[in-house]
């Protein structure tokens, strides 16, 4: 796939823009976190398109954002299990 530019994105209808970005993000995330790729991609797609284009252009920023998403998921799962068991499971 050729790199996604702001003009390519602007030329697509809004609902297709997220699809175009998601299709480029997913393989990059899948390479880092296979089992969570679908969830992490969904979480990142809630970011503004302009910021998502920056992420696609900067592997370093993308990596740190992916790690942030994993941390958010893990923290959420930890609180979930705490609620269920009533005790901290750290």
């Amino acid at each position: 796939q050729e790199p996604l530019t702001a003009s390519m994105l602007a030329a697509a209808p809004p609902q297709e823009q997220k699809q175009m970005i998601g299709e480029r993000l997913y393989p990059l995330i899948h390479a880092m976190h296979t089992s969570l790729a679908g969830k992490i991609t969904g979480m990142l797609l809630e970011i503004d398109n302009s910021e998502l284009l920056l992420l696609l252009e900067s592997p370093e920023s993308l990596r740190s954002k992916i790690e942030e998403a994993v941390a958010v998921l893990q923290a959420h799962q930890a609180t979930e299990s705490t609620h269920k068991s009533g005790t901290a499971t750290f």
Partner: peptide, 26 residues
Amino acid sequence: APVIMSKLSVNAPEFYPPGYNPNFTD
């Protein structure tokens, strides 16, 4: 590198490109 400040939500729906959806078993 640009710092992206948007917050991430665990409630976001999962996203799979065509052909990647693990929920479809061949």
